[in-house]
Amino acid sequence: MAKVFARPKALADVVTHYCPGCTHGIIHRLVAEAIDELDILDRTIGVAPVGCAVLAYDYFECDMQEAAHGRAPAVCTGIKRVLPDAIVFSYQGDGDLASIGAAEIVHAAARGENITVIFVNNGIYGMTGGQMAPTTLIGHKTTTSPYGRDAAVQGYPLRIAEMLATLEGPAYIERVSVHTPQHVNRAKRAIKRAFANQVEGKGFSIVEVLSTCPTNWGMTPVEALQRVADEMIPYYPLGVFKDIDAEGEDK
């Protein structure tokens, strides 16, 4: 009998530390499938963040570097400039990428570094125990916004995909979600595209993936997925924000 479903080669055969219902597992798998399908595992170097995905260096079967908080795009830059033929990706959460590492992501994008960034946005600091993130929605209660995020006190959540799309440097920016199987399929296409772009030398590609945190949102996994549809997507609309190939077609 033909095997129709198996663990991707790029995904390590280990038990992850992620909470039940967390979508990091899905996103890891999509990254691994993209690496497999493009047959780039032996020349891929991943950079893990600080945050829930801090142990990602144990979960992918490629060479990995663990970066300081927020600095993954700078670390990727260093690797890629030394090894231009390597496929270099960072896997970062919203605290890491959009808060402490805001400068690094903006400038890696502006330089058009030929790297792939997987940005997982669940609107909260998960690893440290549910504090407010730069992407936490207005009104959302976290341990450091216990009365709900109030714009007058804590300001507004950042839309990273839209922000980076104003830059000349990036080749491809898309926001996707993984809260339904259809969305997972679309996310898969986006992630593969972001890696393929690098293989083809097209430049900086980032996929923002809306994700859940049942544990720190205080929800069941199903409620959490529903919240993505009801609250996250209205503020963080899905879609392609930049695509140099599509721009070419328009002309």
Binding site: Q65, A68, T77, V82
Partner: peptide, 14 residues
């Protein structure tokens, strides 16, 4: 900060 982390990446890449 970014510069020293680029050094980290590059040194890690040999």
């Amino acid at each position: 900060i970014a510069a020293i982390n680029m050094v980290y990446g590059a040194a890690g890449a040999g």
